[in-house]
Design a protein around this nucleic acid. Sequence first.
DNA 1: TGGGTTGTTCGTAC
DNA 2: CGTACGAACAACCC
Length: 260
Amino acid sequence: MPELPEAEANRRRIEAKCLNRTIEDATPGANVTHLELPGGNECKRLIGRQFSEARRHGKLVFAGSRSGPWIAVHLGMTGRLIPRQEGEEPPDDAKFIITFEGGTRLYFLNKRKLGWLRVIDDPDEFIARQGYGPDALAVSQEQFATIVGDTGSMVKARLMDQKQVAGIGNLWSDELCFASGIAPTHPGDELSQKQLGTMFDTMCEGLETLIETGSDRAKLPDDWLIQHRKKGTDCPRCKGTITTRKIGSRTSYFCDTHQK
DNA sequence: TGGGTTGTTCGTAC
DNA sequence: CGTACGAACAACCC
């Protein structure tokens, strides 16, 4: 579930259910292997504390308080953060469980084990040290134009590079290129200012729509690429055909006609 | 059976 | 140094 809109959905769940309650326990789930999770000392740091806010930067979700500590969560390909109230059925196979006063629990699910959860002191410091670029929903149009337009790299590769702009992955970078009418292979420094402006506006609107709909395919418009993401399919916006190409080791889907 | 996947990281080549 | 690629990680789908 893991690009910016999905990370935001997870953040909001924490915000709605897990703030301002004292943490009574924090522990890895049963039989968890091959996964880096907080050790005993880090778990102890959480106990007795509260989360007073939940933040997001790119695909990362944070929860903590001004004086710390914080949890930092990367959802990987299949990670989810699920709050459950006392008495509600807990999810299966939780990798990490935080229990709050009153019985609410926050479950970290991570089936494919490509995500992680860590205990950290400060999100801003963590984000800077990891070298993340600005969040895709916080970046200015000027910053965006510089990031994408100042390189001969293919725009899709630039959009997916978390060190340039944080939050966009394979799926939504394709969607953004598709909606902008720009080929994912287009060199950034050959885009006009107008094209860069279109991409920026499209990115902001698209991400907002995804957050509002919970990225639910059934609620998204029929002329979005996500509804036609298959090689050889007719393009829903022109007479073209959906084609594919590997970019940055990932399969990119795009229209062979209206994306230039 | 082989190949693909909405995630990142690492080694390697240019 | 920046860029690009394939493999690896892991579980599941077709």
